[in-house]
Amino acid sequence: MATETENGAADAAHGAAESSAGMPQLEVSTFGNQIFWLVVAMVIIYFVLSKIALPRIAGVLSERQGTITNDLAAAEELKQKAVDAEEAYNKALADARAEANKIVADAKAEIQSDLDAAQAKADAEIAAKTAESEKAIAEIREGAVESATEVAKDTAKEIIAAMGFKADARTVTSAVNARIKG
């Protein structure tokens, strides 16, 4: 057939590379070429990967791992710091509260003692004044009794004199005293 002839011609055009079996994979004359270029390619890939690419990637990966570990440690540390700070804050708060209570108690105690002292002083003053007043009253009372005795004596003398009797001073005095006492 014409087609087959044409095919034959086309195959022939491929030269010795084409076998009658028609499978390019089994064309032994190309093996040397393929194997040579394969070896070249594999050697290049092996050296590029083992000398440059793989160590670089391994370095990046381990560096990243290190960074992550460090960051986690730092985060843990910061968290601990935050907890510590909160504790310190709470402690400071409690201290301040205790201090405030103490100050209040001190102030109260001081005021109380001042008050007590003032009261005691006032009591003492009042007592002194009372005593003084009592003394004055007693003096006044004494004075009054004396004056009354005097007045009574004088009056009794005058009355006796007015009645025309001559009064004995001693008798009058004793009589008045007896009356006052009675």
Binding site: G15, N33, L38
Partner: peptide
């Protein structure tokens, strides 16, 4: 139809070279 020697630059060479270049591009 030219004869293929072991050193001839063929389509095998081209596509293996492209694979090598792609690998270098990706990894390097």
């Amino acid at each position: 139809g030219d004869p293929i020697h072991w050193y001839t630059i063929t389509n095998v060479t081209l596509w293996m070279a492209l694979a090598v270049l792609a690998i270098i591009a990706l990894f390097v």
